[in-house]
Design a protein around this nucleic acid. Structure first.
Lengths: 222, 222
DNA sequence: AATTAATTTTAGACTAATCTAAAAATATAT
DNA sequence: ATATATTTTTAGATTAGTCTAAAATTAATT
């Protein structure tokens, strides 16, 4: 089925708001995400329900159908593959990629994505540490945890922070830690709960004050 | 100035119909190219003239303004860079690239194109042998000539054929010659006008019956 | 439970891009 | 040079997506 750019953006928004694709999403939540008015959303929901991409119960909310979810995941897949391309091949930094990937995700060509995936050597995660759905729409969902609860010897990607004070962000910047940074815990000190962490080719020790303010996600790839 | 996808396509069509950007283009010619109706074209011409991208004299035709020409050339630049990317990095064949490049050319990100250009090592020609305008809109216009009139020791790209019988196309296919193929004449026999030609790492002799049916364009790059 | 507040939907209008059919201008042919 | 044909423009309608304002429904509060 051929969808317009706008329809694709609605599906993606609904998907992200429910993540698993089954939770009920409200009209206002979509309006906020898309940055449009609730009345516009209602109109579009009619169209998407008509095409069997969503189930819409008046005044109650929306869920994706199986087709809708598949379609949304495919857009997410394309978005994340393009992000990898931009960062790994075209020297974009992780905070510059989003707007461009937002455009590129709507390009229609199955061959393009198949070949891009191969060209990038089948990446499993995007530069922000989010998993890339495979060609069949399967997605390894790993939920974010706090670094202080992380296990030893597993690869994690930094996906966010709790404390967003400029002092803390400066600390992260100083040690070259940003969204997407890969890290591995190799030891946790029982006495003060400080952790020994490997980032790239560097090893450092972080106090519990630090590790309890960083969100990470497990990831296998790279 | 931010243009819609449709406006960009009209500018590109007008550019291609005039090539140098100065020849007057008719409403019907544009309608044919865009595959739309003449009345739709007239409407759009008003919009583009309003924005100072074209000069439109009623019932007389259209030319690009300097701004319009610059804009059109930038789209052509993006189109051709993407074509190189698709062929060189993603294993597309020259006849598969057009539809995808047609979509990719509208992605808006100056950094993307700057970095893509560098990633591809500043190509000068696309896979069809057409020149890629540089970042300032300068374009090396080389007009196509018949291979039999080509000079020795200059790089050419095959850009078309005169005889399009299936026998002739089979001959080209057999010898791996297609649109975009690079070749160089190293000798021309005075007696029968046959030419010795280098294609990739192979050297072959072509009779005048062949060389007088192939269009080529000089190109420096690659 | 009744009133108030918030959310969602409907109704009607707007813009961009397109179309058909008819009118206006230009080009061609006798 | 006048009639005919072709090209181009105008007028009015249509679709996708959006908006504001008002009505309908659901949720929250006293």
């Amino acid at each position: 089925m051929l969808l317009t750019l706008t329809e694709e953006n609605y599906l993606k928004a609904i998907y992200h708001l429910s993540e698993d694709g089954s939770t009920v999403v409200s009209t206002n939540a979509i309006a906020d995400k898309i940055e449009t008015k609730a009345s516009s959303v209602t109109d579009m929901l009619k169209k998407l329900a008509e095409k069997n991409l969503i189930t819409h119960i008046k005044y109650k909310g929306v869920t994706l159908t199986e087709t809708g979810r598949r379609t949304a995941i495919n857009i997410v897949r394309k978005h994340r593959l393009w992000e990898v391309f931009l960062v790994e091949k075209l020297n974009f930094s992780w905070d510059e990629v989003h707007d461009v990937a937002e455009q590129l995700e709507h390009i229609k060509s199955p061959k393009l994505i198949k070949e891009l995936d191969a060209f990038l050597e089948f990446p499993t995660h995007d530069p922000h540490g989010d998993p890339i759905p495979n060609a069949n729409g399967k997605i390894k969902q790993t939920k974010k945890i706090i670094l202080s609860n992380a296990q030893n010897n597993i690869n994690y990607a930094c996906v966010g922070v709790i404390d967003s004070s400029s002092e803390f962000l400066k600390y992260l910047d100083k040690h070259n830690i940003s969204i997407g940074t890969s890290l591995k815990v190799i030891d946790k000190e029982k006495f003060d709960l400080s952790m020994t962490i490997v980032i790239g080719d560097k090893t450092m020790v972080m106090s519990q004050a630090i590790t309890s303010n960083i969100y990470v996600k497990a990831h296998n790839g790279q």
